[in-house]
Structure formats: structure tokens, C-alpha cells
């Protein structure tokens, strides 16, 4: 965030505060105002884009903690979202209050995530990626066969204090609020002992042991917390869709989520926001451009529409990994520093 030169903290509490400068206060209030006024000014497709973005950010923040901070790669993130939806949807149907359903969805995602995180106690990196990939298919199988099948569950519009979230316009507020609440939790987790324990495990797990960090415990907790986010995001997505179906939680999305934290910059909240908007933006562009390309190459038209957005996103990911593996946030830090030390920057 913007910290102009000439800003000096007089005590440590200011330094770790959520908002550090009057400018940031203004930005925060303005940001919240714009977010909540947005639906009044933009067309429905744009609104749907933002709804999708906020749901994705909620899920990706979990991955920011699990993969970005704790270094545990997961290729099964959407499966834990599905768990949240499949646990939360029947509860909503029975009239359980929305907030409670969201918490239950999060807990369900978290607990299942913790169980499938157990291999992380023994294996790392590439092998762990494969174990979580297996988890994805196992969970999908279990959900289809024992928890409602391919049909899934109908999700009625939930309500809070008589206010029913029965249109996209209204659901937007539910989803944006959930996303901001989860963002606030993420900030709090990363600036305390837990966040540091996660980073300790990511950067050097052996040394983490010698500081008294119970590596097994914190790894499992990273899975629990990361998948809690997934569970919440999963239920919120099913509310938006009006339906909880395993098909909403695809493997492609798991990979895109990892792509988003890579593009954004792995371990920071702003990275999650930037990455999600960037990748979804590119995907949108692909969707807009695909029909035009199809006109140019009529013989390929059939396969073009679905493939172009995926190719676009894939290309962007490859470019990022090659050119700026530390993500957009890192680039932004560089720009910020050079502005701050202007005119001494080169």
C-alpha cells in the first residue's frame, strides 16, 4: 500500500495497523463505497463478473495462506469448495440461518481439507501436488455417490433478518461482504504468530522445528484454514448458482487458482486480488475475442469458442512464470519504491 516518504511511525502499533496513513483510510472508505455502490451503475454482465471475482477471491485467499504462506501446494482446492456447498446447501434447505450455514460449510471444507492434508506430513512439492490431485477425484467420487449425486442440491435464496438474497443484484452484497470479511481474517492471521509459523514452514521447515514450531500441527492447520475459505466460497458460489453441483467445481479452476496466486504474487492479500482480477479479466477478453477469431477462421469455429479463453490464460501464466515469477505485487513494489525515492531512481 501507499506509504509516501516522510511517513514515520512513532510506535510499533501503527506499523502493524490495518490502515496506516490517512490516505489509506480514504482509499479504504472510498473502496468500500465504490464496491457497494457499484451494482447501481453497471450492467448485469459486469455485475456478474464482479460476483464471480469476489467468490474467486474468497477461495483464492485460502490458497494464499496454504500455498503462498505455508508452501503446501494443493491441486484440490475446488473439491473442498464442493464439500462446503454440499454440506451448506442441505442445511440452507432446512432453514438453518445463513451465517451458521457459512460457518458449517467452512468447517466441513476445513475438516476434509485437514484429512486430505495428512500426506503433507510426509511428502512435499511435486508429490504433494499429486496427492491433492488424487484428493480432488476421491472427494468428487464420494460427493457424487453418497451426498446427492450428479444432480446435487437445490439452493433456495437465503435471507438475513428477512432480507432475501433472491436476485443477482442482492446476492452481490452477500458475496462482497463475505469476501471482505475473509480478507480481514486473512490480514489478521498473517500479521500474527500463525502467519509467521506458516512462513517458517515454507522457507525452512527444519529450522522452524528448532524455534519450537510444531511443524505437523501448523501444516495441518494451514490445510484446515485454507480449506475453510474454500468451503465458504463453495457455499457462496452455490447460492449464486441456485444449485450445488459437482460440475461447478472443476479441476481447471483449481489450476487457475494456483495461476492467480502466481500472477498476483503468492503470499499477499493484494496479490490475491490482483491475480484474480487479472486472470478473470484475461479470460473475459478471450470470451469477447473468440467469436471474432471464429469469423476469421470459420473452419476452426467449432472448437474456437471454448478454447480461446483457456489458451489466453495459459499463455499469460507461462509469460508470468518466465518474466515475473514474483507476481504483480512485486512489480508494484518496485514502481512504488522508485516513486518514493524519485528523482534518485533509475
Amino acid at each position: 500500500m501507499w506509504r509516501p516518504s516522510g511517513l514515520f511511525h512513532v510506535n510499533y502499533s501503527q506499523e502493524i495497523a490495518f490502515v496506516q496513513t490517512p490516505f489509506q483510510w480514504v482509499m479504504l472508505v472510498l473502496g468500500l463505497f465504490v464496491t457497494f455502490a457499484l451494482p447501481l451503475f453497471i450492467p448485469l454482465d459486469a455485475l456478474n463478473f464482479f460476483i464471480k471475482a469476489f467468490i474467486t477471491i474468497t477461495a483464492v485467499l485460502g490458497l494464499t495462506l496454504l500455498t503462498g504462506n505455508c508452501g503446501q501446494i494443493s491441486l484440490g482446492h475446488t473439491a473442498f469448495m464442493a464439500v462446503g456447498a454440499f454440506v451448506g446447501a442441505p442445511l440452507l434447505n432446512q432453514g438453518v440461518p445463513l451465517i451458521l450455514c457459512l460457518i458449517m460449510a467452512g468447517l466441513a471444507g476445513g475438516i476434509v481439507g485437514l484429512i486430505f492434508g495428512l500426506p503433507a506430513l510426509r511428502i512435499k512439492g511435486f508429490y504433494l501436488a499429486f496427492a491433492t490431485l488424487a484428493a480432488f477425484y476421491v472427494i468428487r467420487f464420494i460427493l457424487i455417490h453418497y451426498f446427492g449425486g450428479v444432480v446435487g442440491h437445490n439452493v433456495p435464496p437465503p435471507s438475513i433478518l428477512g432480507f432475501s438474497f433472491n436476485s443477482d443484484f442482492r446476492i452481490y452484497y452477500l458475496i462482497a461482504s463475505t469476501c471482505f470479511a475473509m480478507t480481514y481474517f486473512t490480514k489478521n492471521i498473517t500479521r500474527c504468530k500463525w502467519g509467521r509459523a506458516f512462513i517458517a514452514i515454507r522457507d525452512h521447515d527444519i529450522a522452524a522445528n528448532t524455534l519450537g514450531v510444531n511443524v505437523y500441527f501448523y501444516k495441518l492447520m494451514a490445510f484446515f484454514i485454507g480449506c475453510f475459505y474454500a468451503g465458504v466460497a463453495g457455499l457462496v458460489l452455490s447460492i449464486y448458482m441456485g444449485w450445488a453441483s459437482v460440475d461447478h467445481y472443476s479441476l481447471t479452476n483449481c489450476i487457475w487458482y494456483l495461476g492467480m496466486i502466481i500472477v498476483g504474487g503468492m503470499h499477499s492479500i493484494s496479490g490475491a486480488y490482483l491475480g484474480v482480477f487479472f486472470i478473470l479479466g484475461i479470460e473475459e477478453m478471450g470470451i469477447v475475442i473468440a467469436p471474432k477469431l471464429a469469423e476469421l477462421f470459420p473452419q476452426l469455429a467449432g472448437s474456437m469458442i471454448g478454447a480461446v479463453p483457456i489458451i489466453f490464460v495459459g499463455l499469460v501464466l507461462v509469460l508470468f512464470i518466465m518474466i515475473e515469477p514474483r507476481g504483480l505485487v512485486h512489480r508494484w513494489e518496485i514502481i512504488k519504491t522508485s516513486i518514493r525515492i524519485f528523482p534518485f531512481s533509475n
Binding site: K193, R196, D203
Partner: peptide, 22 residues
């Protein structure tokens, strides 16, 4: 065996792990 991705402050604070009551 430092935590290369974290700041100096956070490296040292990580050393306070079991003294930190949170």
C-alpha cells in the same frame, strides 16, 4: 537456515514463537 522470504523483523519474531501468547 533463515526465512529468506520474510523480513528481518519477522525472522526474529518467528524466534519468539512459543513466547507469543495468541
Amino acid at each position: 537456515a533463515v526465512y529468506a522470504g520474510a523480513s528481518t523483523i519477522d525472522n526474529l519474531l518467528a524466534g519468539r514463537h512459543f513466547h507469543t501468547k495468541e
